[in-house]
Every structure is written in structure tokens, then in C-alpha cells.
């Protein structure tokens, strides 16, 4: 699918210092009934964000106007559970372009990249410093450079490199997706398939 290219993101960040944030929290199953991929941001973290009567929960971070930005910072093991890509769609639709954590669940990480969100895995120590930094100053700014594969706390200058494979990096930098690549392999795939007793 088409998404915005990712090059350098300079933004404040929203902290969510909770571990094991599963995709049922990111987008509960009852909101998966759409047949298009738009509008999921309204229900991002629905049950943490709203009461049963749809009034906002004042103590939830997304309802606190002090915090905003295009970077979501989560606790370790972010995105565990269901493979629903709707979780990544909801995060993107809400306006985030980057999720930072010290550890990601596999499927969620892949889904993020496939929809144009950059998952940035940092050390536990760097993550902790990010939380501290945002708590001390909600306007603390971070720079995520994909080409350089570095995340920098623009205020303090502290930086850490992050991993991403070259193929996916190229996709994100250019807004390509995997189907573009696979379609170009059409003949090769069909030859492979014809040799299989399927």
C-alpha cells in the first residue's frame, strides 16, 4: 500500500511506559469490522482511552494535551498478541510515524514497516532515559534518522543507533512496498511453484 516516505522525523514524543502492550489494547477486536483501512485512529487504545460511556479517561496519556508528537514510546515487548495489522493502521491513522521500544513482538514489527511506521528498538537504558526526559520536559524533541539509523534526543544530544535491514530501509526511504518487488519476480516465482507438487 502507499504510504509516506520515511527519511528524518523530528518530533516530540508520547510516553506509554507500560510493558507487554498487546494489540488487543492498541485496537480491540470489536473495532475490526471495517472492510477498508481508514479511521482506526479514533479507536486507538480505545479501552484505555475512553470509559464505557465514551467519555475520555483523563489519566490516559493520549487525553493529556501536554503530550503530543509523531513518536510513540512504549514499554518492552510492545505489540504482542494478535497479528491484526489494524493495530499498525490505528497507530498510523492517529498520526504516529515511529514507535520506540526496547523490544517488539515480531508480527507487529513487520506490520509497522509494511504500513510505513518505523519501529525503533533501543536499549532498555536509552528507553528509560527517553521516559525520564519526556517526563521532565514534555516538549523534549527527538530526531529519528532512517538513513543514519540513529535516534537522538535533540535536547540532550544523547543518541543511539538502531537496526533495520537494508531492504526494508530502502523501502521506507522510497515509499516502496513488497508487492512491487514480488511482482517483478513473477516468472521466477511461477517457475519455483511449478517444480513443487502442490
Amino acid at each position: 500500500m502507499a504510504y509516506d516516505k520515511f527519511t528524518v522525523l523530528k518530533s516530540t514524543a508520547v510516553p506509554l511506559p507500560i510493558e507487554n502492550v498487546d494489540t488487543d489494547q492498541i485496537i480491540p477486536a470489536r473495532f475490526l469490522k471495517a472492510t477498508t483501512r481508514n479511521g482506526f485512529g479514533d479507536n486507538l487504545f480505545r479501552d484505555w482511552r475512553y470509559n464505557g460511556d465514551d467519555t475520555p479517561k483523563q489519566d490516559f496519556i493520549l487525553n493529556n494535551p501536554i503530550y503530543s508528537g509523531k513518536i510513540l514510546v512504549g514499554g518492552t515487548n510492545f505489540g504482542s498478541g494478535s497479528s491484526r495489522e489494524h493495530a499498525a493502521w490505528a497507530i498510523y491513522d492517529y498520526g504516529f510515524r515511529c514507535v520506540v521500544s526496547s523490544f517488539f513482538a515480531d508480527i507487529f514489527r513487520g506490520n509497522c514497516i509494511n504500513v510505513g511506521i518505523l519501529p525503533v528498538q533501543v536499549s532498555a537504558a536509552f528507553l528509560e532515559k527517553m521516559f525520564t526526559s519526556i517526563e521532565a520536559n514534555p516538549n523534549a524533541e527527538f530526531t529519528v534518522g532512517l538513513q543514519a539509523q540513529t535516534i537522538t534526543n535533540t535536547t540532550t544530544g544523547e543518541a543511539e543507533p538502531f537496526d533495520i535491514n537494508g531492504y526494508k530501509k530502502n523501502n521506507l526511504l522510497n515509499g516502496f512496498d513488497d508487492i512491487d518487488y514480488l511482482q517483478a519476480m513473477d516468472t521466477e516465482i511461477k517457475a519455483f511453484a511449478s517444480a513443487r507438487p502442490i
Binding site: N114, D178, D186
Partner: peptide, 16 residues
């Protein structure tokens, strides 16, 4: 797999 990958399998019988 995610939905982007469902599309890949439909289109090419492969995923990355």
C-alpha cells in the same frame, strides 16, 4: 501474517 502480507500471498504466493 498481517494484511499487507495476505495481499502479497494472494498476488505472488510469497511473502518477505
Amino acid at each position: 501474517i498481517g494484511t499487507s502480507e495476505v495481499e502479497m500471498v494472494l498476488a505472488s504466493q510469497c511473502i518477505m
